[in-house]
Simulated scan of single mutants.
Amino acid sequence: MSGTMQAMVIDRFGEPDVFRLAEIERPTAGPGQVVIRVAWAGVNPADWKARRGWLAQYFDYRFPFVVGFDAAGTIAEVGAGVTSFAPGDRVVTASNQGLGENGTYAQFVRSDVDRVAHLPGACPMDLAAALPTAGITAFEALFDVGRLEPGQRVLVNGGAGGTGSFAIRLAREAGARVAATARAANHDYLRALGAECAIDYRSGDVAWAVRAWAGDDLALVVDTVGQGTLLDAVDWVRPGGTVAPIGTLIAGEPAHDARRAAARGVRVVPTIASFERQGRQLRALVERLADGAFDTIALTRMTLGQAAEAHRLVEEGHVRGKIVMEVS
Score class of each variant (00 low, 15 high):
Gly247Gln: 13
Leu289Lys: 04
Ile297Pro: 01
Ala198Thr: 07
Ala308Phe: 05
Leu220Met: 09
Leu299Asn: 00
Gly228Phe: 08
Ala308Trp: 01
Ala214Asp: 03
Arg277Tyr: 07
Asp216Gln: 13
Gly292Gln: 10
Ala307Pro: 00
Val206Gln: 03
His311Gln: 15
Arg283Val: 09
Ile199Gln: 02
Gly241Arg: 06
Thr248Arg: 00
Gly240Ser: 13
Asp205Trp: 12
Thr296Cys: 08
Ile250Gln: 14
Tyr201Ile: 06
Arg267Asp: 10
Ala290Gly: 07
Ala263Thr: 13
Val243Cys: 10
Gln278Met: 08
Ala307Asn: 04
Ala244Glu: 05
Asp223Ala: 12
Glu253Arg: 13
Ala244Thr: 06
Leu285Asn: 00
Ala209Leu: 07
His256Ser: 04
Leu220Ala: 05
Ala284Tyr: 00
Arg283Asn: 00
Ala214Gln: 01
Leu313Met: 15
Ile246Ser: 04
Gly279Phe: 01
Thr224Gly: 07
Val206Asp: 02
Trp236Ala: 09
Pro254Trp: 02
Gln278Cys: 13
Val266Asn: 01
Pro239Asp: 14
Leu249Glu: 12
Ile272Met: 14
Thr229Trp: 06
Gly204Thr: 13
Asp205Glu: 13
Ile246Gly: 05
Ala233Met: 10
Gly252Lys: 11
Tyr201Phe: 13
Val237Ala: 05
Arg277Thr: 04
Trp208Cys: 11
Leu304Gly: 04
Gly228Ala: 11
His256Glu: 12
Pro270Cys: 01
Ser203Met: 13
Val206Gly: 02
Pro239Ala: 14
Trp236Gly: 01
Pro270Lys: 02
Ile250Tyr: 08
Asp291Thr: 00
Leu313Ala: 14
Ala307Ser: 15
Ala307Gly: 11
Ala255Ile: 11
Gly241Val: 04
Asp216Val: 11
Arg312Lys: 13
Gly279Pro: 05
Leu304Ala: 14
Leu304Gln: 04
Arg288Asn: 04
Arg259Ile: 14
Thr296Tyr: 06
Val266Phe: 11
Trp236Cys: 09
Ala261Glu: 08
Pro270Asn: 06
Ala244Pro: 03
Ala263Trp: 14
Gly252His: 00
Arg264Gly: 09
Val222Thr: 03
